[in-house]
Design a protein around this nucleic acid. Structure first.
Lengths: 335, 335
DNA sequence: TTGACTTCCCAAAACGTTTTGGAGATCTAA
DNA sequence: TTAGATCTCCAAAACGTTTTGGGAAGTCAA
């Protein structure tokens, strides 16, 4: 609506001075600065973002890519995390763009378009895989980025992640301590980093306990996946006494399969999930779970991004958040 | 990376001609156009979006505002809808921006900043309320917008919505037809349009059935809300025989409360929700629900937005999508 | 009084596109 | 042959900012 030229004219000043007054440069007299600020306020002036980006040669925006295809996207709280992240970014004048991609194939295309066109100054990478080509691409191009979840090359870049490995180790330890002999793992596809780490934690606890069994089944991280996995596990010669599920969604599927076979979770068979979904407290029986012990992952993510844009080295920006157990009714005793 | 000036120089043409060749103007010779296109391809040219917006005086972006506060945001599939929407927008070169707002108070502020700064050409309004100040504001400013969910002023603007009223009327009818006498409604806050319409459908069916009872309880659209509502309803002198819940999340809470009191949903008491959440098929018993009978709400939303940006009148862009019942185990008979 | 320093301000040049208003050829019709 | 049409192309002016490189007063020290 109103621009610098209008503002300057109405004040009898030059565009330069108005611009510098608003940007807080020191070479403008205090009285002038106040006059300018008042006028800007009165005329409801906001710098035109396109002009500013053009001149500054940055987009003042951060992009997050979302796969559209596989039906469901991550845990339901994910959108809240993005919103919190966006809010923090907005405090620094950065927009958050949603870049949907058509499946994994289209992902790299989307990245190329994004970066060739300079539509974003930095990128948030979600749903990280252990071997994630996106990381290589972004490093090569020199675009700042933060991953939500680690990768095999984590030591080289900024990331934020929950300590799923410790969480699953602790949970499996507790199950073992309470007498469980056959603690099965319902795994998510192992190319996903979070799935790999959670399985690793489970394995570590089994090693500690000297347990020889390695009962596991990998499925999609959905209710249907957990259901399918549980059915398979129950069909084995020596079925498990505990199910450690990669996600709550899978655990909910597991509960359903158990019920169908006449088992009561938390009595005959223990079940523990991860994410502490809102609905976890309302399953039957209420689902024992675990969650990242931080209320503001989104905000932290944003702050890492801002630090990265400010030139901080990605290797200094690596956060692993503790995971807290949320015991409810389904982790019940074996003996 | 590369720009029009470079391209033009390498081709021995003027910037004007290169620009017009790529934009498909008719006043450029076919041979020249091909030469230009080939060079653009080879040099990996993409128009600088900031420069383009500056000159064209539009942002080439669409914004959606998200409240960050109240913990959970809408049904989990919401993010998928946004992703689908963003994908369709991208086909027309439009970016999708996420604009988080700090609670309802900050919402109008965010809108003002957004529009004063011309950061977006159009807006998606979600979580519509019956009396929604955002609609008035956007109409006044003349910014194209589409609401996801109706408002009290729906006839004046573009919207897309499911026919929750018919869905709840049908569900309540079926319950009545199978002998239920006291069909209670677990309502979401009535300022939200979807909640109002679903309640209206329930009321209509009760009227048809000549049922005098109006047993209802309003709570937050979460599992906890449904739980609380059910507890209250069961404490009444003549408890309901059926619970029609505004959302599946509430229905899941209801199932939990019923179980706690020793009831089996689908036998003593029927329960029906709305949204057909992925987990609805895995509750115990599996939850009867309903859902919008369209796979591509997000894409349709995007297309309405594009039509709106193309100058189409909002009154011609109003879609009410049918709602389909998804019967499972909990809508069981009364008699 | 002079020279050096401050303090406060500004003109003009970018940034990379789109669009306006032609201009020079070439062709067509009389 | 000439007047118009038709094809191709282009120079230059925006769009609204930020930033560079001063410049004109005023101040201070000698």
């Amino acid at each position: 609506m109103s621009n610098l030229k209008l503002l300057a004219r109405s004040l009898g000043l030059s565009i330069t001075t108005v611009s510098r007054a608003l940007d807080g440069y020191s070479d403008v007299a205090p009285a002038t600065r106040e006059r300018v600020q008042a006028a800007a306020q009165a005329m409801n002036y906001r710098p035109n973002p396109a002009a500013r980006s053009l001149r500054r040669r940055r987009a003042e925006a951060v992009a997050v890519t979302l796969p559209t295809e596989p039906g469901r996207f991550g845990p339901p709280i994910f959108l809240n995390m993005l919103a919190a992240c966006g809010q923090r970014l907005a405090e620094d004048g950065l927009d958050l763009m949603l870049l949907p991609t058509a499946g994994r194939a289209g992902e790299m295309d989307t990245y190329r378009r994004l970066l060739d066109g300079r539509r974003a100054d930095a990128v948030i990478v979600v749903r990280t895989r252990l071997d994630d080509e996106r990381v290589g691409f972004l490093k090569e191009r020199g675009i700042p980025f933060v991953t939500h979840g680690r990768t095999a090359r984590s030591e080289e870049h900024a990331f934020i992640d929950g300590d799923g490995e410790a969480g699953f180790r602790d949970a499996a330890r507790q199950l073992a301590a309470s007498g469980h002999q056959r603690i099965a793992h319902i795994a998510a596809p192992q190319d996903l980093t979070f799935a790999h780490l959670r399985r690793k934690g489970w394995l570590a606890a089994l090693d500690e306990a000297g347990s020889p069994d390695r009962l596991e089944y990998t499925a999609q991280p959905t209710e249907a996946g957990g259901y399918e996995a549980t059915q398979w596990l129950l069909r084995q010669d020596t079925p498990p006494t505990a199910l450690l599920c990669a996600t709550d969604s899978m655990a909910i599927g597991a509960l359903s399969a158990l019920k169908e076979r006449g088992f009561t979770a938390g009595r005959e068979i223990a079940v523990i999930g991860h994410d502490n979904l809102p609905s976890a407290a309302f399953t039957d029986p209420p689902l024992s779970s675990m969650e990242i012990a931080a209320p503001d992952v989104g905000r932290q993510l944003a702050e890492m991004l801002i630090a990265r844009l400010g030139g901080r080295d990605g290797r200094e920006l690596q956060t692993i958040l503790p995971v807290r157990q949320v015991p409810r009714a389904t982790h019940g005793p074996a003996n």
